[in-house]
Design a protein around this nucleic acid. Structure first.
Length: 873
RNA sequence: GCGGGCGUGGUGGAAUUGGUAGACACACAGGACUUAAAAUCCUGAGGAGGUAUCUCCGUGCGGGUUCGAUUCCCGCCGCCCGCACCA
């Protein structure tokens, strides 16, 4: 290339190629395509107004996967959309008097432009926002289908109320007793709410985790714990004496083996029996009221001591003739787990022990640790919860815990109390139904009508969608829909009398629980086209932040099941492969007064090998602080737009993929981005040099220079590595391999230039073309520019992925390390697969080995073929 | 408290099933080019000692298994994450 410019200019090249891809519809995906499908998806963004570095990292990874799979011959679906309902739009409406719709769509337009400037291979023809009428219309259809299928329920229960956002939160959305979004301390309120019956699927959601073998173990474990299966026993305790409102109390336990150590029974303050007893006991009523005031925030729970109120009731011990146990109402017993009642065995449960010490109840050890002496074994301040053998326990004595549990269950199941078996096996889950009612405007309206005569009436399908009204006020807190007379007051669809429209909207997590299905047929007039959904799903590779390990991923797994049950598709697990990427971090800086300072306001220097920072302009000293997740409050945010303007998208993409393993946090550094920039320029220069050498006339046909074969060997070896690394999402390792290839080519170019042969020119062409193809998924614009310069008229992104030729991978000579007593003392070069005795002889003949052996014969020689020899002296 | 993960040069990080620790990059130092700087290119480098060949020590700490341990086992120390009155 005669007039090739010195430097690569991304400001010219990037928009150019983006325009070409858009015009050629390069990345638009057809549902009818004979190539095998591959669905790669990154978690779609909330349209906050600007993309951040976390988006850049997330979508760059997804784009590498998409472009790689595309080059490997797959029909790739790689869509993008917007998780567009939610509170921030309403907050903006309140603060700036702008309608949430307007605010949201403006943000989407701005962010779409930013994403497009990154050059992602997205199919923009499938784009939608969850606040699009089309989308929430279909979501209302789904809701009604789920209602018909019995997957939706309405119940009155205690709910988490966020006093700042004026709305209800699901359990999953309460973090450390605070609203996940507002951060406000959550209150408990009694409300009637809509629920999805996710707990119906608890068993299946749990079992199927075992088969999600392309998910991180960490996420699988978190989901397992969240579902929280525990196997236990419900046991009936007979109430002793007369005058009690009931004959029995049913408790739940996972430790029936410790029943002989029971010393009390405790009821939840919300237990119906407790309420009944309180009617005749003012003091108990006061105690229960006090418990309710206590709140259930994490802080309240942690600081609350175990407290109980001793009722007049006693129950008979199920096994010990004549023995009775006192019945307490205790503040630590939860009504919505198990039966709301427990038996306490203080010796083997810390909480029960604390309670027993406080109220001076007996502590009877019934599990003996392996080495303990039964005569002296006693419980002091710590309960024994480990393994051991039952003792003090009648027919259980001598059994290990598991056997004792089983024996107790089998025994009690046979006994009849009050007409029922005394015990029944019970599986309990921590997972609760998913409350989806939100008292907000900017969400998907729940399509039902409340009629005093007909009850709950679904909005007829031909009247869908229930549209969000435009004319709403955000001046007062609370739900604008509830104040909107035209929206709220409607005739009953069944009887025609005056009725009330449901004014709650759905939790925005509903929107994100099926968007990945909708992408397969985004304009369908039904929620899905089942055969199309079945073809694409499950998503082959889903990529996003680990913060969604429970909420979003569990809800989506539930939705896939619900949608399968209602016939919208036939795939139970939505995401075959899951990858959770790390965060983007940056150093933090503070000035003398302790205020955070933005990196753009600082200049850096190196003094005595130490980095020092000064404020731009004033020159005041700045303290370099810890590396933290980029956040506005710490002012350590770097704007992707600035990076793209300065270095271009490819440089930002390359930096995001280099060095740090994708699942770990990556630290954004100025030197790192500079390094990426230099590599972009280096590749460009290398291609320029290679191009001129490739154009030279070969002076001979073949070459006897071994460096040509070495070049090909390296190129093919690296091809194999990169292939495996990209398939396994080990981008940082692929990057290292690409550097090696670039280094090898750089050394090879002068070799070819000095003595161009047909052989060496072909080897160089093969190597440099591979290099460009390897960088193509990572730096697509640079790759296209280079590809063109290498004389191609087709695009790099349309070129099949290069293969590694096994002939070049096979080594005929290997270097084996030689150890003496496990210490490396030298190496030998041997033909591949040389017989062990030859290897041994060669190793022993090494001077260093002979010197250390000092004439003595080795005791043993271990030969690991083609790897290592260890001489044991 | 329960559960899980991590700990390797100045830095980010490599290292198949236990088999040559430190690939690749960043930063650094020296050199070349330049009036000079930037850019670029070349060279060096885990630590200690030695002119060099070389020797010793080295993957948080202490043990163990093994011909051989960053990798497996046991016990500590430190950091990070998740759950948290779930009976």
């Amino acid at each position: 290339m005669a007039n090739a410019p010195e430097r690569y200019n991304p400001r010219e090249q990037e928009p150019f190629w983006q325009k070409v891809w858009a015009e050629k519809k390069t990345f638009e995906t057809s549902n009818d395509d004979s190539r095998p499908p591959y669905y790669v998806l990154e978690m779609f963004p909330y349209p906050s107004g600007r993309i951040h570095m976390g988006h850049v990292r997330n979508y760059t990874m997804g784009d590498v996967v998409a472009r790689f799979q595309r080059a490997k011959g797959r029909n790739v679906l790689h869509p993008m959309g917007w998780d567009a309902f939610g509170m921030p739009a309403e907050n903006a409406a309140m603060a700036n008097k702008v309608h949430p719709r307007e605010w949201t769509y403006e943000n989407i337009a701005a962010m779409r432009k930013q994403l497009q400037s990154m050059g992602f291979s997205l199919d923009w023809s499938r784009e939608f926002a969850t606040c699009d009428e089309e989308y929430y219309h279909q979501q209302q259809n789904l809701f009604l289908d789920m209602l018909d299928a019995g997957l939706v329920t309405r119940k009155t229960s205690k709910v988490n109320w966020d006093p700042v956002d004026h709305t209800v939160l699901a359990n999953e959305q309460v973090i450390d007793g605070r609203g996940w979004r507002s951060g406000a301390l959550v209150e408990q309120r009694e409300l009637t709410q809509w629920f999805f019956k996710i707990s119906d699927f608890a068993e299946d959601l749990l079992d199927a985790i075992d088969r999600l073998d392309n998910w991180p173990d960490k996420v699988r474990l978190m989901q397992r714990n969240w579902i929280g299966r525990s196997d236990g026993l419900r046991i009936l305790f007979e109430i002793a004496g007369e005058g009690a409102p009931e004959k029995t109390i049913e408790i739940f336990t996972t430790r029936p083996d410790t029943l002989f150590g029971a010393s009390f029974v405790a009821l939840s303050p919300d237990h119906p029996l407790a309420a009944e007893l309180a009617r005749g006991d003012a003091e108990l009523a006061e105690f229960i009221a006090e418990c309710h005031r206590m709140g259930t925030s994490a802080e309240a729970i942690e600081t609350a001591e175990k407290r109980g109120y001793r009722t007049a009731l006693k129950v008979r011990h199920p096994l010990i003739e004549g023995a009775t146990l006192p019945v307490y109402v205790a503040n630590f017993v939860l009504m919505d787990y198990g039966t709301g009642a427990i038996f306490g065995c203080p010796a083997h449960d810390q909480r029960d022990l604390d309670f027993a010490r406080k109220y001076d109840l007996p502590v009877i050890p019934v599990v003996l640790p392996a080495d303990a002496d039964p005569k002296v074994f006693a419980i002091d301040a710590e309960a024994y919860t480990g393994a051991g053998m039952a003792f003090n326990s009648g027919f259980l004595d001598g059994m290990e815990i598991d056997a004792a549990k089983e024996a107790m269950a089998a025994y009690l199941e046979q006994r009849i109390v009050d007409g029922h078996p005394q015990a029944s096996r019970q599986v309990n889950y921590r997972l609760r139904d998913w409350g989806i009612s939100r008292q907000r405007y900017w969400g998907c309206p729940i399509p039902v009508i409340h009629c005093d005569t007909c009850g709950i009436v679904p909005v007829p399908r031909d009247q869908l969608p229930v549209r969000l009204p435009e004319d709403v006020e955000f001046d007062t807190p609370g739900n604008p829909l509830d104040r909107h007379q035209g929206f709220k007051h409607v005739p009953c669809p069944t009887c025609g009398s005056a009725a009330r429209r449901e004014t709650d909207t759905m939790d925005t997590f509903v929107d994100s629980s099926w968007y990945f299905v909708r992408f397969t047929a985004p304009r369908a007039e039904t929620p899905t086209i089942p055969e199309v959904a079945d073809r694409w799903l499950p998503v082959d590779q889903y990529i996003g932040g680990v913060e969604h390990a429970i909420l979003h991923l569990l809800y989506s797994r539930f939705f896939a099941r619900a949608m399968s049950r209602t016939g919208h598709m036939h795939v139970d697990e939505p995401f075959k492969g899951l990858f959770t990427q790390g965060m983007v971090t940056h150093e933090t800086y503070r000035d003398a007064s302790g205020d955070w300072v933005a990196p753009t306001d600082i200049e850096f220097d190196t003094i005595d090998g130490h980095r020092v920072a000064r404020a731009l302009g004033s020159g005041d000293p700045i303290e370099i602080g810890s590396v933290e997740k980029m956040s506005k409050s710490k002012r350590n945010v770097v704007d992707p737009d600035d990076m793209i303007a300065t270095y271009g998208a490819d440089t930002a993409r390359w930096f995001m993929l280099s060095d740090s393993p994708p699942e770990r946090d990556v630290q954004w550094t100025e030197s790192g981005i500079e390094g990426a920039w230099r590599f972009v320029q280096r590749i460009y220069k290398l291609v320029g040099e290679a191009t001129s050498v490739l154009a030279s006339d070969p002076v001979m046909l073949e070459t006897d220079d071994s460096r040509t074969v070495d070049m090909l060997r390296a190129a093919h070896r690296i091809t194999a590595h990169i292939d495996a690394d990209l398939a396994g999402l080990r981008f940082n390792r692929a990057v290292a391999q690409i550097y090696e290839l670039a280094n090898a080519i750089q050394k090879f170019i002068p070799v070819v230039a000095a003595a161009p042969s047909l052989d060496s020119i072909n080897a160089l062409r093969s190597a440099i073309e591979r290099l460009i193809q390897f960088i193509a998924p990572m730096m697509p614009h640079l790759a296209e520019t280079c590809w063109k310069q290498l004389g191609h008229t087709t695009m790099a992104c349309d070129t099949p992925w290069p293969e590694a030729d096994p002939a070049y991978l096979a080594e005929d000579v290997v270097v084996l390390a030689v150890q003496v007593n496990g210490k490396r003392r030298g190496e030998i070069e041997m033909p591949k697969d040389a017989p062990s005795d030859q290897v041994e002889t060669a190793a022993l003949s090494l001077e260093a080995v002979a010197r250390i052996l000092d004439g003595k014969a080795p005791r043993k020689v271990i030969v690991v073929p083609n790897r290592i020899v260890n001489v044991v002296g």
